[in-house]
């Protein structure tokens, strides 16, 4: 049975940084070349010369090794006027692409890994929140997530309880909506786009669409890079490297509800590239 993940869209380059010489990279173990061919045009080709479908969205170039049955997922907020779109850049991580997404969906690690920024002891409790798999959209959603944060964003001055929503629209992509300190009632959008190089190696391309008129663009980039780099040593030291779809060697609790829903959704769709099927 071929993995249906082959038909999904994946980020393979930052559009603003892609030139005519392009870049050689890997997608699910296959060497590919991505290069700019015009002011708004990009070509992606496999090693044998086969050209791959391309989309340019959310600051990134997207392609697929298979035949995508669905258009690249929509992030409506990306087109809202007044938002600042932030290309955060790429970071390579020696872990399963699925583990990178799962970690992004996790809040319980904030006090220990993002200490004094996204969380701090003694505020470690994860309160009940809602998780659902939206059938029409075929996406995982976690809503009514709340967590106390000493410095939730670059624009946050002090500690506040931050509201979150998480969305998984594709097996290696996640969109996070969080309270936007300068504009109560609006949500900042922070995404994690993951390029699966192999089942145990990935390139992570964070991207943001923020309401923040004050902060310097570089500050915004640095803040998000700082957060993600605090996670990197965790991701590279989880055993096994692949994401277990059988939790027999783990102990998920209610705080891991989003992780469980994400893994269930992967399992239902047979999205197993980067997954470990049997607990060992």
């Amino acid at each position: 049975m071929s993995d249906p993940m082959i038909d999904e869209w994946y980020p393979v380059a930052l559009f603003s940084k892609l030139d005519a010489a392009g870049r050689d990279t890997l997608l699910m173990g296959h060497p590919i070349h991505v290069a700019r061919t015009g002011s708004e045009r990009v070509a992606a080709t496999e090693a044998d010369g086969r050209s791959l479908p391309v989309r340019i969205r959310y600051g990134h170039v997207w392609t697929s090794l298979g035949e995508p049955k669905k258009e690249l997922f929509d992030i409506p907020e990306a087109d809202e006027p007044g938002r600042r779109l932030v290309d955060v850049g790429v970071v390579r991580v020696r872990c399963s692409p699925l583990r990178a997404v799962e970690n992004f969906l996790d809040i319980a690690h904030f006090p220990f890994v993002h200490t004094d920024i996204l969380g701090a002891e003694p505020h470690t409790e994860v309160e009940k929140y809602d998780v659902e798999i939206r059938e029409k959209e075929d996406e995982v959603w976690a809503t009514k997530v709340k967590f106390f944060q000493p410095q939730a964003a670059k624009s946050a001055a002090g500690g506040i309880t931050t509201d979150y929503m998480y969305r998984v629209p594709a097996p290696t992509c996640s969109v996070l909506y969080k309270t936007c300190p300068p504009r109560p009632g609006e949500w900042d959008v922070i995404t994690l786009f993951v390029q699966p190089l192999t089942e145990e190696l990935c390139d992570v391309w964070p991207w943001m669409a923020l309401y923040d008129d004050e902060a310097d663009m570089t500050d915004l980039i640095h803040f998000q890079q700082m957060i993600f780099l605090q996670d990197r040593s965790i991701l590279e030291n989880q055993i096994p490297r692949r994401l277990p779809l059988d939790p027999g060697m783990e102990i998920p609790t209610r705080a891991d509800m989003t992780s469980v829903a994400y893994r269930r959704w992967l399992k239902r769709h047979n999205y197993t590239y980067g997954a470990q099927l049997v607990a060992q």
């Binding site: 220990f112 200490t115 004094d116 002891e121 003694p122 470690t124 700082m226 957060i227 780099l229 605090q230």
Partner: peptide, 15 residues
């Protein structure tokens, strides 16, 4: 800096 974690052991366990 990112990649170097806090020495949580320097703080007592929160009551």
């Amino acid at each position: 800096m990112p990649g170097i974690h806090r020495l949580h052991e320097l703080k007592p366990e929160p009551a």
